[in-house]
């Protein structure tokens, strides 16, 4: 048997697998759209941001205002990235340029372990440890701040590992030429190496944003979930994902359909992020 004669079969199987994956994705999108049709037809997607309140289960006057939840989602996600990005960048720089070999392996191991902790564990830790501490400063404790901190912790590994890899892949002559010009070590790092990796840093933050956006269990436990537009970090917020997880099990008819519509909205947001990542990467190549 020659490898050549094997190829058509293997190729067919591999193609089928790839096609299967794509089909599943298309089916999921179709399913979400299909389930949202009820609310889209009867109420329209725009009611998600024109209605003043979210009472989809009301029998007399159902309303579908999701603005507080959209704002909550964006604040929690943006806040987490704002907290985690500088931390992650500093951590990656430390690991790459300042740590000894042993320390580097230790830190990398810990970061990878951090990435492997299930989100519900982060949530429980947040609820039993972080929330009471925040409650001591200002009640109720379950808040946007708690959500941001837990999410930041969760996306930190993604950011550190991606930036670490990007820094490691910088061409050696970059550092050498900078050193030859007589620049100090910190100058070389912050004025040459880090800026030249900025696209990879951008990609890392977008990937981390997508992760934070989709996170459900941890934010459900620590954010408080009251449907109000937050006016301070200590206010309770509900994210779109938490809303779906909280209400889906008990939702029927239009309520259920409205939840699928908010899922569609999330899908759109994540799609935009992925497009952004693609755009950044394409620029890197050309």
């Amino acid at each position: 048997m020659t490898p050549r004669s094997d190829r058509p079969v293997a190729l067919f199987v591999l193609r089928s697998c790839a096609l299967g994956t794509i089909t599943i994705l298309v089916l999921i999108v179709a399913f979400v759209v299909g389930e949202s049709v009820d609310v889209l037809r009867n109420a329209g997607l725009s009611r998600l941001w024109t209605d003043p309140t979210w009472h989809p289960a009301s029998k007399t006057n159902p309303t579908f205002g999701a603005v507080p939840m959209i704002v909550g989602t964006l604040f929690a996600t943006a806040g987490a990235v704002v907290v985690a990005l500088p931390l992650g960048l500093l951590c990656a720089v430390f690991v790459n340029y300042h740590a000894t070999h042993t320390l580097r392996r230790l830190v990398n191991g810990v970061i990878e372990l951090l990435a492997g902790i299930p989100s519900v564990v982060y949530g429980l830790w947040g609820l039993t440890t972080l929330v009471p501490i925040i409650a001591m400063i200002r009640g109720p404790g379950t808040s946007l701040l708690a959500g941001i901190l837990v999410l930041a912790l969760m996306i930190l590994p993604t950011i550190v590992l991606l930036i670490d890899q990007a820094l490691r892949e910088q061409p050696a002559e970059l550092a050498l030429s900078a050193a030859a010009l007589g620049l100090s070590k910190s100058r070389i790092i912050w004025s040459v190496l880090v800026p030249s990796a900025w696209r990879s840093i951008g990609t890392a933050s977008l990937l981390a944003t997508a992760r934070a956006l989709g996170e459900t269990m941890a934010v459900l436990l620590v954010c408080g979930n009251a449907i109000k537009t937050p006016t301070s970090l200590f206010d309770s917020v509900r994210t779109l994902t938490a809303n779906i997880a909280l209400e889906m099990a008990y939702a029927m008819d239009t309520h259920r359909s409205a939840l699928f519509a908010s899922g569609l909205l999330l899908l759109g947001l994540v799609g935009l992020l992925i497009a952004g990542i693609e755009l950044l990467e394409r620029r890197v190549r050309t």
Binding site: A57, V131, A135, P140, T142
Partner: peptide, 27 residues
């Protein structure tokens, strides 16, 4: 009616409710 309720924290199941109240002296 559910629209009259003015909640600070909204929870899912009983266990989450108990954990939330146990962690907050004013709840």
């Amino acid at each position: 009616d559910s629209t009259d309720i003015d909640a600070d924290v909204v929870i899912g199941d009983n266990e989450q409710g108990i954990k939330t109240v146990a962690g907050n002296p004013t709840a």
